[in-house]
Design a protein around this nucleic acid. Sequence first.
RNA 1: CGGGAUGUAGUACAGUUGGUAGUAUACUUGGUUUGGGACCAAGGGGUCGCACGUUCGAGUCGUGUCAUCCCGACCA
Length: 492
Amino acid sequence: MAKELKDLTKRSEDYSKWYNELVVKADLAEQADVRGCMVIKPYGYAIWEKMQRVLDDMFKETGVQNAYFPLLIPKSFLSREAEHVEGFAKECAVVTHYRLKTNETHDGVVVDPAAKLEEELIIRPTSETIIWNTYKNWINSYRDLPILCNQWCNVMRWEMRTRLFLRTSEFLWQEGHTAHATREEAEDRAKQMLAIYAKFAEEYMAVPVIQGVKSETERFAGALDTYTIEAMMQDGKALQSGTSHFLGQNFGKAFDVQFLNKENKPEYAWATSWGVSTRLMGALIMTHSDDNGLVLPPALAPIQVVIIPIGKGDQMAMLDEKAAGIVANLKKMGISVKYDNADNKRPGFKFADYELKGVPVRLVLGARDLEQGLVEIMRRDTLEKESVSIEGIEEYIKNLLADIQTNILEKARKFRDAHIYECDNYEEFKEKVKDGGFFLCHWDGTAETEAKIKEDTQATIRCVPYMFEQTPGVDMVSGKPSVARVLIARAY
RNA sequence: CGGGAUGUAGUACAGUUGGUAGUAUACUUGGUUUGGGACCAAGGGGUCGCACGUUCGAGUCGUGUCAUCCCGACCA
């Protein structure tokens, strides 16, 4: 099966096909029969669960609590906030009836026309509206604030074109929604959560990201500011991997969420929302994988170490026993390990299969090596093999896992940094941007310039990045003055 | 919704001038194997997307229809 993956055209030639095949072959997910939705398979879901656990802990450290709000949103809620409607209305699934009945020939069902809903319900594309409708009941005084809620759920957006993990009609995510008494507090929270996303991306996913703020046209519908982390994939395209929005008082006003402040004066609550989705899985896959398959960061790999025994029939009992000791020790150290002694698959098949699945470390327990007290150990990121003493192998593995984690982050960072260009000449930009990469260019701040760039090159302004030193300059398209360079790239 | 392509076994594909369905892989059973994706033997699985038409006869030709994929518009 995996042989087909190796036979695929290389990444550079047909990146999307390579990516899709990889997701399927590595047993992460597949296209569902339902339009634009995906089935996440157990192995893929295990990665998502690990991400959830880590993120959840990070949120809770900042005082956020989990909650749950309804899937269905009354249509009228969506029209309360004008810009929000504009942004989402076009791509929503709508519930119009609440009952089916058997058809005339009694071999199927039809929608019962008598069961038409008076007000249609929308399957949530995001939950700002229903949550703020609820917050109205929770907030009376400045003493009730801040409210810091997060929910893990699914949402649905009727996308025109879908791709596994990166853009599916239904996706899993977390959405945090906070309410604050002051503008400053809300703005700080929006930035704080972005920083958490960036930390998670780098420390756990080993995906380096650029933090910044979105231009007006790229903002979330209804937000005053949208902060973003942008990652670079191996084909040089950008992937928006997480966003945090400062929503001002837009939703407070739209849902009439007022509180009495310390001066006993009514005031609208200030809002933020922030989310990351199963799209992060896409980022993970596209950042690290090679033509042998997935390369998972040890911090998120469901299986961190796989042990494969090799020997003749009568040696297996001895190998099982030897492995059991190592497995027990590794588990004690909090390392997840799988011992695969299935006899219906040959070692070569297992090697290839676990490489495809991105298991960071492989240990080969061979009867022949064991006579000399040696085991073969392979690291997935570099595919380097080494024979090491079985004495103290656990400690060796622990260090190796840490080394892989930092190594793949550095590799990804080096790749990204080598593909970031400062550019002041539009003709040159147009030529170069086709091949991918991030471009730091001066921008006059107008939507016209932004639109022209998009029309000419398909590239968009990803963000105004924080992390680079900024000096004023001249817009490369319009020639007008510019205060800062923005990050421009083609994006997923 | 515009431009292009494709629908044949679980999957990936072949199928010549129209003549009654084939390869690989996967699956099942038995045996031999096991240091980089094993081998041998036997076996199961398809109203060729759907409908209509042409024909003695359609996977193949025609018309229609549905679905999927790719490139745009939209997007976490």
